[in-house]
Design a protein around this nucleic acid. Structure first.
Lengths: 352, 352
DNA sequence: GAGTGGGGTCAATACGTATTGGCACCATCT
DNA sequence: AGATGGTGCCAATACGTATTGACCCCACTC
């Protein structure tokens, strides 16, 4: 419990507006809420609006919430998303849609909370929320606080480990992985290595499925291709690429994400090879300020974080009834310069 | 205005707790707020706490706010911070401090708002906030909404363009720049180039001041050293490094941030040079998952975003009176592997 | 000209909490 | 015994809004 809390300044109330307009407080309420079912003379309506504008009236959400149990806040529960690069785009997209409607986002991060944020959720509920949006950096099952029963719950890039979700929003990792892989297979690459993220990770498994299907579509047997796993970090991309390239001499690397792709790029350089002349590289995520900035520009499948957030926002504003249980958003393939034709002849033997 | 807003479920109120404990609602209020100045029998107190726990009572912040004008929310106004890599650490640090005290952060991003977020601020004020924290990705002057008069205002990594701030929190960019530069001068490098961020940017200017002073301390004249400016992106680091290295053949590059340092690293590779054997590189920011992951690990000055956020949180919880007007937080030098001794002999002429 | 109906407005109230003022009870003091 | 003061509790109220159920007045119908 907190010991104290700061107080705000005196604020303009509906009663102030009413006095100024020479009407009663309920009349002001009717006008400002545009209650067309209650008759208000046009002249009165004008006076009220004018007075409200002059006084810069801002409705007291606390009073509204107390009286009507109508909330204008969206609770956002994230685990590490705020602190991670670019995934905050989910929150940004959500805000873009929701703010113009007068809503505000209350963001709570559960990263370092052993209780998985149950307390944080309790405080959100205490504040009163119109809906709760769980958002995750990487798609995975998330603990859903039991205190949320009866509250609209939306999962973005994650799904409830237990309990219920009104809607689950995910990126199409499979199709993205397939498109990314196809971008090299279609160019004629045959010796392609898959440098995945974390082996048991949902995204990694889906992207590998996509990779394997793209290989099959190209007439190859996935089992004949090299698959390795890392941890989505630059360093692991560097290490895996160093190993795989020197051992198997592939002509293309399909990486678990853009960070691993950068690691692979550095590794290539360290080995005296050039991208895409000697080896092509494909990333995943289209990480802003990275995929487009690196030299050569990275061909990659874009994770639609912003769009996921926006769709979530639309759900919040819409009626709970006509919301779908599941929404899948495409991962667009962004083609840049890191993929080229396979080199004419093999550069070195597969093994000493 | 929004047309509708979702309603929450029925919640446990103090009156429910009171009924269960066989006391009146005010008594519950006294107990739960630990009002020691009001006498409550120990036995009664116990019963109330028990009932509250059993019913999982969560105080209705809206009612508290309405009654006492005491808010448990902190309004956070950011411009692009949520969507940018790692700078969300400011928000995270803020939350870490503030959440245990029962506060929740309402985050509003003004990135794409032509009105600089005045509307957003108005909605924050409408919600009722204990304080407003402005947070910026890069240190710069920010527009302060006039509607905030009377509300506690804290600026993190920015300062008010006009109007008043209770406290301004900044990183010590000058000292950071100086330490970063010293890390190469102290090793004996003399031909050092400064690859800055945006020329007129506050951080860039401060870091350059630090760089120049470090040069003087090493017995060099800053005017004799190469200074170039980019835009903090990987690509600009790549381009500048390519130019500077081939034209002047420096033994060390002091970069505007870690992204530019990565660009420089890539450029070095492309030129057939190695870091730190041929050229040392220093970054700025200590960008998580990048500076430590890149090969070689980047020596860099750490931007104390998390700490800035935490300090802001402490301010929010403290009394407004004893808050300092200005807080400067150190940028710690993180030494990794991208800085080495200067090469014995010059690798190439300075000019053709 | 009495009755009807609807347009325009307002008084009163409820939401859940914090706070004020007071009541009842008991122990202690003169 | 009566006065005093402290302890332990509660009734009543205010915060700003939305909503219900009136009220008044005017125009219209028969």
């Amino acid at each position: 419990m907190a010991k104290k809390a700061a107080a705000g300044p005196k604020r303009v109330t509906m009663t102030d507006v009413a006095r100024r307009a020479g009407v009663s407080q309920p009349t002001v309420s009717f006008v400002l809420n545009d209650r067309r079912d209650v008759a208000v003379a046009e002249e009165t309506r004008r006076r009220v609006l004018e007075a409200a504008a002059e006084l810069e009236f801002v409705p007291n959400r606390a009073a509204q919430l107390l009286r009507s149990n109508k909330s204008f806040t969206v609770g956002v529960v994230t685990s590490g998303i705020v602190s991670q690069p670019y995934a905050g785009l989910i929150v940004l997209g959500l805000q873009q849609v929701v703010q113009p409607a007068g809503y505000v986002c209350m963001v709570v991060d559960t990263t370092d909370d052993p209780g998985q944020g149950d307390d944080a959720v309790a405080s959100l509920v205490g504040q009163g929320v119109a809906a709760i949006v769980y958002a995750s950096l990487a798609p995975k099952p998330l603990h859903r606080s039991p205190r949320l029963d009866g509250i609209r719950t939306i999962f973005v890039n994650c799904w409830p480990e237990e309990g219920h979700a009104d809607t689950v929003l995910l990126a199409d990792e499979y199709a993205g992985g397939r498109a990314a892989a196809a971008s090299v297979f279609d160019r004629g690459h045959r010796e392609v290595a898959f440098l995945g993220g974390m082996r048991n990770d949902y995204a990694c498994k889906e992207r590998r499925r996509g990779f394997d299907d793209a290989a099959r579509a190209a007439g190859l047997r996935p089992a004949d291709l090299v698959h390795r796993y890392g941890n989505y970090q630059i360093g692991s991309g560097y290490d895996l690429a160093t190993d795989v390239v020197s051992e198997h001499g592939p002509t293309a690397l399909v990486c678990g994400n853009d960070r691993m792709a950068i690691g692979a790029l550095l590794a290539l350089h360290a080995l005296g090879l050039e991208c895409p002349r000697d080896v092509s590289i494909v990333g995943f995520d289209d990480q802003p300020d990275v995929a487009d900035q690196v030299r050569p520009g990275l061909t990659t499948a874009a994770l639609p974080h912003l769009m996921l957030g926006r769709r979530a926002g639309e759900l919040v504003l819409s009626a709970p009834d006509d919301a779908p249980e599941r929404i899948i958003v495409d991962c667009e393939l962004i083609e840049r310069d890191s993929v080229g034709d396979p080199p004419r002849r093999r550069r070195r033997g597969t093994r000493p």
